[in-house]
């Protein structure tokens, strides 16, 4: 089958969507290689199709068997990014997986968002511990006048009227402990969730 301009345009459109999807979580070089391979598949399928009465029908059949570009991209994310995150637990791989998972549905979005919040709060505690020696008079904890603890952090004057701001170096080990604990807990939850999400997606992307 020799493709017309319209057929070529349809293939370029498919590959464009695929490349855009892949580039959101793969390096440009890996994405380009994947797109080149899928293009090779399409060209081979077109060549094997021989002479057909209706190019459009034949081409749509080829692309349908290949699967929608988003689905192919999802399979790549599953095999590459999420496998790396679930098996190695590398921080950046886990973050990339969460970012990608968040784009796949509402439930996944909120789950990934919750985990991002967990990481952020843990990191915030670590930042507080780091800032204490640098700004000793601005990092501490708020208490009510009758001695009830409210919260800890960086003091912005005037924000918490009616509370007493205490500066104590005890905040460093406490913030480090809580921050590190939260990061570990969130990371462990993130890995478990990515593992579960990957298995569920593998099931839905399995050959039928």
């Amino acid at each position: 089958m020799k493709l017309t301009d319209s057929g070529e345009s349809r293939i370029r459109g498919y590959l464009y969507v695929l490349e855009r999807s892949l580039r959101s979580f793969l390096s440009p070089a890996v994405a380009a290689d994947a797109v080149r391979e899928v293009e090779s598949h399409i060209r081979d399928s077109v060549m094997l199709a021989g002479d057909v009465p209706d190019e459009r029908v034949a081409l749509e059949g080829i692309l349908e068997r290949l699967g929608p570009p988003m689905r192919v991209a999802q399979a790549y994310s599953l095999e590459l990014v999420m496998d790396e995150a679930a098996t190695t637990g590398r921080f950046m791989a886990v973050l990339r997986s969460l970012a990608h998972a968040a784009t796949t549905g509402v439930t996944a979005f909120f789950a990934a968002f919750g985990l991002f919040v967990g990481y952020s709060i843990g990191a915030a505690f670590i930042v507080v511990a780091i800032m204490k020696p640098i700004f000793p008079n601005n990092v501490g904890f708020w208490m009510t006048p009758d001695g009830m603890f409210v919260s800890g952090g960086v003091n912005f004057p005037g924000v918490r009227d009616g509370l007493v701001f205490h500066t104590s170096y005890w905040i460093i080990p406490i913030a480090l402990l809580i921050g590190y604990g939260l990061l570990l807990l969130t990371h462990s939850l993130a890995r478990r969730w990515i593992g579960w999400f990957r298995n569920r997606r593998r099931s839905s992307l399995a050959p039928r």
Binding site: E37, P69, V72, A75, P207
Partner: peptide
């Protein structure tokens, strides 16, 4: 009789 969604074989090969 594994009728594959053809596009999903490439990520597996890649992995």
């Amino acid at each position: 009789d594994l009728v594959l969604t053809e596009g999903t074989i490439y990520p597996l090969l890649s992995r």
